[in-house]
Design a protein around this nucleic acid. Structure first.
Length: 946
RNA sequence: GCCGAGGUGGCGGAAUUGGUAGACGCGCACGACUCAAAAUCGUGUUCCGUAAGGGGUGAGGGUUCGAUUCCCUCUCUCGGCACCA
């Protein structure tokens, strides 16, 4: 028979599929469930790279599988066609951005077509077409009417290269622009902004119900960055103003020793008249202003700041006056722009306090529950103040410990404080009582109190002990006899520092104490038990938080890292913001009947340094009438961030040709939410978050029937160059899929990419030029199955076939296309050994059809199929075929596989034991030893212990 | 620093509930076919060892008849967040 000619096969079937409109999807098919399979629509850069293939062709496998499983599958495609590259090409090469874009789209349509993907092209959308952006504008106005859009002067991210404002999401951690790489500047500009922060809580909380990969959910949570705490007012002494601070640790309020304002804080202006060091304060503000945002972010270096001399804030818990500083470690745009500083319990405050010599007041002590000696229920609970003594012998450099033979512990010496006794006195007394050493010198406190909860076995009671840790030195080794009681309990031993072993130490707090002993005392940022906090002493942090907030009249509140979404872009190639500025009416949306506000043709696309869009040059277009009062007015000349276009496109696919509405609610109801959404991980905190927000807002406006748009989201992996690096022209490691398709065929590229690794994990896989040859070889073997046709499928092949039906089905469902293909390879190898019947070969064609649709269709037709294979149903496996009469079971002896025995399946356990023990190899291994135990896991293995 | 995902042959990866670790593919080696090569087909391929046997899933410990899988400690890689109060 002739060889596998991918070119003619693929051309032939693509044509047939197109002519028969095989993939045109109805909104409803009787008896079929709808399944919406979506891939992020591509930007028409004009070049379909391997990444697009990985996105679309592999998702197509899933779409085709779902179709075979009897679902009515929608798999649409379109173009996210507004954006900077078009405009930059226009500027650089004198092209019209529209023409440039549509030319690219034309090229990409052909490339996308070459995949043989089951797109319903009749629903194609192009976001830069007026038919589409009319509805982007309409939805923008709906959000405006709902109070979710506002124009405000804000400090924005200005990209000096692209000369436009960027959303926070478009600025990288090092302060450079994601697109241009320019160092982003902060500018105050009047911008349109969408209030995504109003939805912050729902955007976090609704994630819980979604069955998405954890990484995506966590990344979104981190990005939104909710922290729960409280806002508390600190009155300024001798005035009627107050500083509102945000804190997550109201339980440390009694430990506040100063208050810090961000240099940009509004109150600073007001307070500056009162300070006696005005010039120093003004200078500091000037200096921090000049520091770039980036330095402030990454700098992390030395704490700087200046005190407002003569200004004091009043701690509402204690009524103490504390100094007020301004310092740039406090950020103006987070929380309230002011913090209460608790140096004892916050690392940054601690650093600052050390540098400025401010007092450090400890109000929380760590609390430990000793898991090795937990409280025993029913026993008395006794509280005490205690001491933990580390005794050093300066001559030997060894440390004194006690061995408790009955419990197997080694501990430091510890005990309770007696009435009117100081910690130091108690330490020296305890050492004397327990070891007889007479001459001890107190050296220092290793730690303040630490609370530990444990059961004191020798006293038969539960203890809660606040213990101080003390370091003492032995002045000489003079020693008295100790009491018999003490002697029976424990023996003193001297250990090297390195021998003091956490494992053997009695109480859990020792980990903490040992750390302090080594590194010295610093701030304790954890939660614990309150001390020095008046009526709240002894409470745990969690409980104290609410009570303290209540007492001082504060308010429990959350703040977010998430900022509102600035959507104005000072660029040409985008969706015009459909707003009109009227001198008398203010900002007014364009009347609905006048939509779309068409993007005018202009000749000069160059962005301007003054922060205005190139559209400001289209004066005819700009001058218009106010829709409200009819007076002269001007159009908004900024365009929308392209993320607005892509925040709703999945709804437009459902009704892409509707000229009366953005999308018909009845159609949306049929398809939403999207069942499967494949995209790039770079969009986790951008597009996916914006789209979720948008859809939620539309849900609240009753324009979308669901509050979450995507019931499953997958961040797909990355295909690297053959050298293991990210593909890039400069590295010369770019694989052009068009060339691979030409050489080996679309089916081969699909198979290879599906086989390269699991699709449901965002791994990165190098393109292996040999690997794709392997995929081609496999398809050639599939093609040659027609040479292996026999009258009746041999039983050995039949069994493998049914196993494959089951396994491929499972793997497709869980997106492990790599193992599905591996199973098909095993099946193919078996067929090559023994042959297969025509009818069963047709099943094989079905199994491969989602992966290699052209080849499968060709095979199907040659085997006598009439209709398209892609209209068939997934084969059903016969469970009978999966069980066999005999099974081979491994025999483990002492955990090692030593023999294989062949058993009839369903053999009773006692017979299995007999048979196994009689086995020759088993005999050899157990000869001379006594069989202690035999474990039989039916049909799995036998384990013998001797 | 916090949060998340990971670490398995020369390589990509498999092992779905604790049950024969390394499926399948690539590469490599040998063989068949060939004057020869390519293609194809076949055999082998975790490491050490001629073998018997032993070691082995980032490291160390634990639970278990049995651990890549569960628990503890540590380590490294990748991703998100980060002077975020």
């Amino acid at each position: 028979m002739e060889g596998y000619d991918h070119k003619s096969i693929e051309q032939k079937w693509k044509k047939v599929w197109k002519e028969t409109e095989l993939y045109k999807t109805s909104d409803e098919v009787a008896g079929k469930e709808n399944e919406y399979v979506l891939v992020e629509f591509p930007y028409p850069s004009g070049d379909l790279h391997v990444g697009h293939w990985y996105a679309f062709a592999i998702t197509d496998i899933y779409a085709r599988y779902q179709r075979l499983k009897g679902k009515n599958v929608l798999f649409p495609v379109g173009f996210d066609a507004f954006g900077l590259p078009a405009e930059n090409a226009a500027i650089k090469r004198g092209l019209n951005p529209r023409e440039w874009t549509f030319q690219n789209i034309e090229v990409m349509r052909h490339q996308l077509d070459s995949m043989g993907a089951s797109f319903d092209w009749s629903r194609e959308i192009v976001s830069c077409s007026p038919e589409y952006y009319k509805w982007t504008q309409w939805l923008f106005i709906k959000l405006f009417e709902a109070g979710l859009v506002e124009k405000k002067i804000s400090l924005v991210n200005w990209d000096p290269i692209d000369k436009t404002v960027l959303a926070n999401e478009q600025v990288l951690a090092d302060g450079t622009a994601e697109r241009s790489g320019a160092l982003v500047e902060k500018k105050e500009m009047e911008q349109w902004s969408i209030k995504i922060t109003k939805y912050a809580d729902r955007l976090i909380d609704d994630l819980d119900a979604l069955e998405w990969p954890n990484q995506i959910k966590e990344a979104q949570k981190n990005w939104i960055g909710r922290s729960s705490g409280a806002e508390i007012d600190f009155k300024i002494d001798d005035s009627d103003v107050a500083v509102k601070v945000f804190t997550t640790r109201p339980d440390t309020l009694f430990g506040v020793t100063y208050v810090v304002l961000a240099p940009e804080h509004k109150l600073v202006e007001e307070l500056i008249s009162k300070v006696s060091n005005k010039s120093a304060v003004e200078e500091y503000i000037e200096v921090t202003k000049r520091k770039l945002e980036r330095e402030r972010l990454i700098g992390v270096s030395e704490k700087t700041g200046v005190v407002l001399e003569g200004v004091f804030a009043i701690n509402p818990a204690t009524n103490e006056k504390v100094p007020v500083f301004i310092a740039d470690y406090v950020l103006a745009n987070y929380g309230t722009g002011a913090v209460m500083a608790v140096p004892a319990h916050d690392e940054r405050d601690f650093e600052f306090a050390e540098k400025f010599g401010l007092p450090i007041k400890k109000v929380v002590i760590p609390r430990f529950v000793d898991n090795k000696n937990p409280h025993v229920e029913g026993k008395e609970v006794v509280f005490r103040k205690g001491v933990l003594v580390i005794v050093r012998n300066p001559k030997t450099e060894k440390y004194l410990c006690l061995e408790w033979p009955n419990q197997g512990w080694t501990t430091f010496i510890s005990g309770g404080l007696e009435e009117n006794e100081s910690v130091e006195e108690a330490a020296i007394r305890e050492v004397y009582e327990e070891t007889g050493y007479k001459n001890l010198k107190f050296i220092k406190m290793v730690s303040g109190p630490v609370q530990v909860e444990f059961f004191a076995a020798h006293k038969n009671l539960n203890r809660i002990s606040n213990s101080w840790c003390v370091l003492c030195e032995l002045e000489n080794e003079e020693q008295d006899e100790v009491s018999v009681d003490e002697k029976n309990l424990h023996t003193p031993i001297w250990l090297d520092k390195s021998e003091i072993n956490r494992e053997k130490m009695m109480h859990s707090e020792l980990d903490y104490v040992l750390d302090l002993w080594k590194s010295g005392e610093k701030e304790y940022a954890g939660e614990g038990i309150l001390i020095n906090s008046g009526e709240f002493d002894g409470l745990q942090s969690e409980e104290a938080k609410e009570k303290i907030v209540q007492k001082v009249g504060g308010e429990m509140k959350s703040t977010y890292r998430l900022r509102d979404w600035t959507v104005s872009r000072q660029r040409y190639w985008g969706c015009p913001i459909p707003m009109i500025n009227c001198a008398s009416c203010g900002s007014v949306p364009e009347a609905e009947e006048n939509l779309p506000v068409i993007l005018p043709e202009i000749s000069d696309y160059l962005p301007r340094d003054d922060g205005k869009s190139p559209l400001a040059k289209a004066t005819d277009w700009m001058h218009t009438k106010c829709p409200k009062c009819g007076g002269d007015a001007e159009r908004e000349t900024d365009t929308l961030d392209t993320f607005v276009d892509s925040s709703w496109y999945y709804l437009r696919y459902l009704d892409s040709n509707n000229s009366e509405n953005f999308s018909d609610i009845e159609k949306i109801k049929k398809w939403m939410p999207v069942n499967f959404y494949s995209g790039g991980s770079e969009h986790t905190t951008m597009h996916v978050l914006f789209a979720r927000f948008f859809n939620k807002a539309l849900f609240d406006l009753k324009l979308s029937p669901v509050s979450e748009p995507f019931s499953y989201r997958l961040n797909r992996g990355l295909i690297l160059g053959p050298d293991g690096n990210k593909m890039s022209k400069s590295k010369g490691n770019v694989i052009n899929p068009d060339i691979e398709v030409e050489k080996l065929g679309a089916d081969t590229v699909r198979t290879y990419l599906a086989f390269i690794g699991p699709y449901n994990e965002p791994g990165s896989y190098p393109w292996d030029p040999n690997g794709i040859v392997g995929a081609r070889r496999f398809l050639e073997r599939i093609f040659k199955i027609s040479d292996k046709i026999v009258e009746k499928t041999p039983e050995s092949v039949e069994k493998v076939l049914h196993k494959a039906i089951k396994k491929v089905e499972e793997d497709m469902q869980r997106l492990k296309f790599n193992t599905a293909i591996s199973e098909l390879m095993i099946l193919t190898n078996e067929i090559f050994k023994s042959g297969i019947s025509t009818e069963d070969a047709k099943i094989v064609a079905k199994l491969i059809s989602p992966i290699a649709p052209h080849l499968a269709e060709e095979m199907w037709q040659k085997l006598g199929g009439v209709e398209s294979i892609h209209k068939e149903n997934w084969p059903v496996f016969d469970p009978e075929m999966l069980v066999s009469d005999t099974i081979t079971v491994p025999v483990q002896i002492n955990g090692k596989v030593r023999a294989q025995v062949v058993l009839p399946s369903e053999m009773p356990e006692n017979e299995v034991r007999e048979l196994v023990l009689a086995d020759e190899t088993v005999q050899k291994w157990i000869a001379g030893s006594e069989v202690k135990k035999i474990i039989y896991i039916p049909n799995k293995l036998v384990s013998i212990v001797v």
